[in-house]
Design a protein around this nucleic acid. Structure first.
Lengths: 137, 137
DNA sequence: CAATATCCGACTAATTTTGTCGCCTTTTGT
DNA sequence: ACAAAAGGCGACAAAATTAGTCGGATATTG
C-alpha cells in the first residue's frame, strides 16, 4: 500500500516544475535532471531515469545539448495519481494475481473477484485525484 | 500500492468464516488454522500467524484444545479495509516518511504535506469500505 | 497423558526495491 | 572540428522488505 521512492521522486520533480513561474505566452525554460536531483536531494541516476519515463509518457519533454533538460508540457490537472503510478510503477493492481495468469493459488481461491472488485474501487479513486490537486493542500 | 500476501490470506480466511452458515442463536463452530490453510491453499504457518493476529485484535476468537480453532466474533460490516490492513501490516501510510522522524530527505523535501494530504484521502477511502462490502461483489 | 490446538521468537529464503556503473547519442559553444 | 553538457539505456549490485520455516512453549480435551 506504500508509494515507492520513484513515485516520490516523480512527485518532487513535478512539484519543482509546477513552481517555476513563467511568463504568459513564453516557453517554460528547461531544467536538467542533475538540477532536479540536487534540488530534491534525490539520487541523480534514479531521478534521471524517472524523468526519462515521465518524458516518454508525454508529461515532460526532453531536450538534448548544452542547455538541454526537461520542460513540463502537460497540464497536471489532467494527470491523475492513477496515471502517474501506472507510468512509474507500470501497474496499479492491488494483487499480482489480477494480471498473473500463472497464479495457482488464486485460481483456486475464493477471493479473486472480491479483490478485483476492491481493486476497481481503489483505481477509480486514484483516477479521481489529479496531481495538481495533491499539490494544492 | 499492492496488498501483501498476509492481507490476502486474511481476506481468504475471513471469507471462509463468513460463508459458514450457522443457525440463528447458536454459536458458530470453530475452524482450525490448519483447516483454513488447507481450504485456501495457503501456507500453514503463515496462515496461523495471520489468524493469531486477527484474534488478538478481536476479529476472531481463539480456542485451545482438541476441538479448538477460531471463530468469527466481529461483524465484518464493522471492519473496514483500513482496519484490516492496519492490523495485518501495522500501518497504512503511503510513505515511510510520514511516521519516520529520521527521514533527512523529507525534512528538506517539498512534498511532505502533499503526500500527507494524499495519504489522508486514501485512508479515508479505505475506511469507507467494509470487508463485508468487499465480499459482496 | 497423549493428541490436538493456539502462541511466539528466531531464523532463512525469495523477491522487490533502490541505487550504481559504463557507455551510447544528441546538441551547443568555441 | 571537437569538447563539454545534456539525455537514453542496459546490466548490474546492494539494500530492504516480504514470505515462509522451524522449534518449542502453553492450553484444552477425551
Amino acid at each position: 500500500m506504500k508509494l515507492n521512492k520513484k513515485v516520490e521522486y516523480a512527485l518532487m520533480a513535478l512539484k519543482h516544475f509546477s513552481e517555476l513561474d513563467h511568463q504568459e505566452g513564453t516557453v517554460q525554460s528547461t531544467v536538467s535532471a542533475k538540477d532536479i536531483a540536487e534540488a530534491n536531494h534525490s539520487p541523480a541516476e534514479v531521478t534521471a531515469r524517472v524523468l526519462q519515463t515521465l518524458s516518454s509518457h508525454g508529461i515532460l519533454k526532453a531536450e538534448y545539448g548544452l542547455h538541454g533538460g526537461y520542460r513540463l508540457v502537460k497540464d497536471l490537472a489532467k494527470v491523475s495519481v492513477y496515471d502517474l503510478v501506472n507510468i512509474i510503477e507500470g501497474s496499479t493492481d492491488l494483487a499480482k494475481c489480477i494480471s498473473d495468469k500463472e497464479c495457482d493459488l488464486l485460481k483456486k481461491c475464493k477471493i479473486v473477484s472480491p479483490v478485483e472488485n476492491l481493486n476497481k474501487k481503489v483505481q477509480n479513486f486514484y483516477k479521481s485525484i489529479s496531481v495538481e490537486e495533491v499539490f494544492h493542500v
